[in-house]
Design a protein around this nucleic acid. Sequence first.
DNA 1: CGCCTGTTTGAGAAGACTCAAAACGGGTGG
DNA 2: CCACCCGTTTTGAGTCTTCTCAAACAGGCG
Lengths: 250, 250
Amino acid sequence: MRRDALTTRLEQHLPLTSSERRALETLAQRERRLKPGETLMIQDQPNDQLFIVQQGWVHSARTLVNGARQIVGFHYAGDLIGTSSIAWTIATNTVTSVGDSIVSELAKAALGRMFEQEPRLAATLYAIAAADSVAMGDRLTSVGRMGAVERLSLMLLDILARLRVTAGGIVDSFDLPLTQQDIGDAVGLTKVHVSRTFGEMERRGLIARSGRRVRVLQERELTAMTGFIDRHGVIATDWIPAPHATAEAA
Amino acid sequence: MRRDALTTRLEQHLPLTSSERRALETLAQRERRLKPGETLMIQDQPNDQLFIVQQGWVHSARTLVNGARQIVGFHYAGDLIGTSSIAWTIATNTVTSVGDSIVSELAKAALGRMFEQEPRLAATLYAIAAADSVAMGDRLTSVGRMGAVERLSLMLLDILARLRVTAGGIVDSFDLPLTQQDIGDAVGLTKVHVSRTFGEMERRGLIARSGRRVRVLQERELTAMTGFIDRHGVIATDWIPAPHATAEAA
DNA sequence: CGCCTGTTTGAGAAGACTCAAAACGGGTGG
DNA sequence: CCACCCGTTTTGAGTCTTCTCAAACAGGCG
C-alpha cells in the first residue's frame, strides 16, 4: 500500500514517535478512487465522515441561492477534508475531484480518539488548520480587494508553490486541469473575463500557455505585484510538548 | 474576576469536568484593555502570543501591497485569536479593537500543554476552528459572488446572529461602531459605495438607520435573498470521547 | 464656535458582466 | 482516417455595477 499522505504531511512538520505513526496507520480506512468531476460530498446533504486526500486534487465549493458557485479551496495530498462535518452533520460544501484522485475515509469518532491518545498529532492538526485559515484569508483578501490580473496571478502562484512541495525541483509550468469556469468560480470572475484576463497576461509576457499547460514567465514580478506569500511551507510546532520518554523509546 | 469567556464558550458546546475547568483557569494570563482603534497585533511583526477576547469586539485585517485593506474577520467574547501565530512567528494580520474591549494573553506553550492534558478541550477548539473556517468560506462566497446589497445584508445578519448568542431575546437593532470604511473593507466595497448601498437598502425598506444604530426591518427577506445561515449556533461534539471516570469524579 | 472625522451626493470613468456568435480541440462513431 | 459533436475558449458589442475624484454636508468634541 501507498504511504499514507497524512502521515507524510504531519511528519514534515513534526518528528513522529512510532506510537504516533501507528495511530495514524489505523486512522485511514477504506479508500475511494474518484474520477474527474466526481463528487465526494454534496452541500446540504448529511455527512459525518472526513477524508484524507491521498493522491490528486480536489476542490470544495459552495452554491448560492442565485445558482452561482464559489470555490472556497483546493485540497491536495495530505489534506484532511470535510472538516466542516466536524462541527455539523450536514456538509457545508460540495467536494469535487479535479482530475483523478484517491481519498481515504476516516470516521469522526476515530479523530476524537486520536485527539485523546496522541495529543501531539492533534496539536499539529490544529496548527495546520490555523495555516489553512490564513491561506483562506489570503484568498478573501484577493477576491475582495484585487483586480482580475492579480487574482489570477495569485492563484497560479499558489498552485506553483503547492506543486513545489512535492516535486522537488523548481517547477515553473504545470497542467491546469480546470476549466476557466472553475477558475472564475475560485477567484470570483466570470469565465469570459477569465479568458480575457489570461489573454492580457499573455500579451504582457507574464505567462505563456499552450493547451492546458501554463508557464509562469515573470514569477518575480507577479509575486511583487500581488504580495504573494507561500503558506505551504514550514509551520511552527515548537509550542508542542516533547513526546514522553516511554513513547519515544518505542 | 469576570468569568473567563473561553470557558463559557467551551461549556456551551461541551459539558466540562472540573479538571478541565481548572485547566482553563490557568490558561488565561494577564489582561489587556483596548481602546477603540487600538491594535493588539500588527501584520508582519513578530508575535508569539494568542489572545482570548473577554469582552467587546476586535477585528483582524490585512493590508495589501497597494495600500488597500481587507478585514478578514471579527472576533467576539470567547474567541481565541492570533491563531495564525500558532503556525508562524510573524503575525499575518493586524488585530484592532472595535470599541472598547478586554483580552487576555495566553502563551503558545500553554496551549500545547493543554492539548496534552485536556484532549477534549483540544478537540472542541478544533471543532470551533472548523466552524470559523466555514464562516470564513461564507464571507469569501459573499465577496466573490454577490452584489453590494447582499454583501452588506449578510454582514448585518451575521452581526445580528452573533449578538443573539449573548443577548437572550430577539434583537433586531444594534449599534454599529464601525465606519463605512471599515464595513467596506470587510465586504470588499469602497466606503462611497457602502454609503450608497445603505441608502438604497433604506429606500427599499430593508433596514432603517439613525446615527450608528441599524434596525433590520425585513430579516426574513434578507435571509432568503442571501441564503444566510447562522454559524454561531451549536456545533457537534458527539465525536469527542467521554471524560475518564477519574476526571469526571472531581 | 470651529475643527475633524465620517457620511452623503454628484459626475464621469473603469472594470467586470451579459449575451451572442464564432473558433478550437479532443473524443467518438462511421 | 475522417467527419462530426460537444464542451470549452475566444472575440465582439453593449450594459451595469462599482470605483474615483471632488465637493458639500453632518455631528461630536475640545
